[in-house]
Design a protein around this nucleic acid. Structure first.
Length: 471
RNA sequence: GGUACCAUAGCCAAGCGGUAAGGCGUGGGACUGCAACUCCCUGAUCCCCAGUUCGAUUCUGGGUGGUACCUCCA
């Protein structure tokens, strides 16, 4: 499998440290609000990467953190007049509401900064001991950037250029403008932890370094996150971890591209900033997932109503394929596959290879999706032309389709597969009306079922097929 | 100013040396009592100009037009 590695700026063949195992870490949310539609992209993409590794037989240790102590969390808490942990607790819970609905599997571990304080202090201490960090007059602890020669290797920016662009704040207490905080001295009224060098709380970058250490070790295979985190966040993580541990931090760095809204950068001032659950209300969670997979993860992706509508319809085509297959399986004769079916099935499996080839090529989901659609078209065409298709064949086709859709986390919703007696009676009454050639009555009942019961009726050669219309 | 990325049909979007996947939409047709679903047919001088090459959407250079990052924003 090939992955685009920000460190080398090219697609590198993925070689894990230990055969068959992947250690990956992904930057998770700061929990001060529901997560927005832009946050959803990395969560979905890196969940997909993790799933795909698992599909290919890797054992994956996947860690995604919660930043639960931070300026934004504190501000939010102050606004509401509660302690910061109330805010964090609430939005961690809400994160899972959205993430679960998006089909994002739980990480192996979801550590929180406040629960990793020992590891954080340990790494700060080691940086201080080695002279890679220093305590400033006000009690802040800063990383001495000059002591890390390869600083800038991830963002590929030379140090002096970075300095030229750096904003130097008034009343500078740092030795060098490029130095960054690994520990922030306690301010009045803010939560703090007791450390040997003084009271305070961890800087943002240090928590990720510490969590990687604690849960995955000194070196990991893959570190992922949004494009914007490359500098300074990931650059700083590298500096801290490599200085503290004296070895490589992560072999591969994977970054997703940004999401724009109607071709504009998402921002609060433009008012184009909204939560994933708001979008889900309009189009469904799985449509959002489909949308995220419709383009390559490193490309910029534009969110628009039109785009979401298109993806919703595309997804429905996939659901239709599954429903039709299941209906046919139920009606089919329980016979073994014919020679023709065996041959056909072998042909269908070529789409699986296309799917894998696409995913192996730096997670080309658009291409993988096209393989799924081609599979669907082929299955539909064959089963339409072969009313006598065997249950065995239909079942294998169904399994293949669900396998590929499952890797992408799509077509995962299950409708209730039973209908109440009233609906059953209406369907029967419509059939009777049709037999009597009373089409007006038959259409009336079909309309009642659709409008009032949310049941769509299809007349097929195998009988009446119904499905629930999603609201 | 520094560092990158992108420009493919009405829309979304793969491909990246041998004249273009897939989805949505449009217009035909088949199936249906009608419909729905499904199937078949329907669509591209690949931003412009040079260059390299037997051959370029695909490589190089130059335009033009977008976008992102450069201290806490995924």
């Amino acid at each position: 499998m090939k992955l685009f590695n920000t460190l080398t700026r090219q697609k590198d063949e993925f070689v894990p440290m230990q055969q068959g195992q992947v250690k990956m870490y992904s930057c998770g949310p700061t929990v001060y609000n529901y997560f927005h539609i832009g946050n959803a992209r990395p969560f979905i993409i890196f969940d997909l990467l993790r799933r795909y590794f698992e599909y290919r037989g890797y054992q994956v240790q996947f860690v995604q953190n919660f930043t639960d102590i931070d300026d934004k969390v504190i501000n939010r808490a102050n606004e509401e007049g509660v302690t910061f942990d109330v805010i964090a607790e609430r939005y961690i819970k809400e994160y899972f509401v959205d993430a679960d609905a998006l089909g994002i599997h739980r990480a192996t571990v979801h550590p929180r900064a406040t629960e990793t304080m020992d590891a954080i202090m340990d790494i700060v201490k080691r940086l201080l001991d080695k002279g890679h960090a220093y305590v400033a007059q006000n009690g802040d602890v800063y990383f001495r950037t000059k002591t890390f020669e390869t600083y800038g290797k991830l963002s590929h920016q030379p140090m002096d250029e970075l300095q030229a662009g750096a904003r130097i704040s008034v009343g500078e207490i740092k030795e060098d403008p490029m130095d960054f905080a690994v520990w922030k001295a306690a301010k009045p009224g803010e939560p703090f932890w007791e450390a040997p060098w003084g009271k305070g709380r961890p800087g943002w970058h240090i928590e990720c370094s510490a969590m990687v250490n604690q849960y995955l070790g000194e070196t990991i295979d893959i570190h992922s996150g949004g494009l914007d985190l490359i500098f300074p966040h990931h650059e700083n993580e590298i500096a801290q971890s490599e200085c503290a541990n004296g070895c490589d931090f992560s072999h591969y760095w994977v970054h997703n591209g940004f999401l724009t809204i109607d071709n504009e950068k998402m921002s609060k001032s433009k008012g184009n900033f909204f939560m994933v659950r708001e979008a889900a209300q309009a189009y469904g969670y799985e449509t959002i997932r489909m949308f995220m997979l419709s383009a390559h993860y490193r490309s910029p992706l534009n969110y628009s109503e039109e785009s979401l509508k298109m993806n919703k319809v595309s997804l429905e085509r996939l659901y239709e394929a599954r429903n039709n297959l299941e209906f046919r399986m139920e009606k089919a004769q329980d016979e073994p596959m014919t020679a023709e079916e065996t041959e056909k099935y072998a042909a269908l499996e070529s789409y699986k290879q296309k799917f894998i080839d696409a995913m192996d090529d730096d997670l080309n989901t658009a291409d993988a999706l096209s393989a799924v659609f081609e599979l669907v078209r082929d299955i539909n065409g064959y089963s339409a032309a072969h009313i006598e298709a065997s249950k065995a064949f239909l079942t294998k086709a169904h399994t293949l389709f669900m396998e590929l859709a499952g890797v992408l986390g799509l077509v995962q919703a299950h409708e209730e597969d039973s209908i109440d007696a009233e609906i059953e009676a209406l369907i029967a009454a419509r059939q009777q009306a049709k037999t009597n050639k009373d089409f007006a009555e038959a259409d009336r009942i079909r309309d009642v079922l659709l409008q009032e019961k949310g049941i769509a009726i299809k007349d097929t050669r195998q009988g009446v097929q119904w499905s629930r219309v999603n609201q």
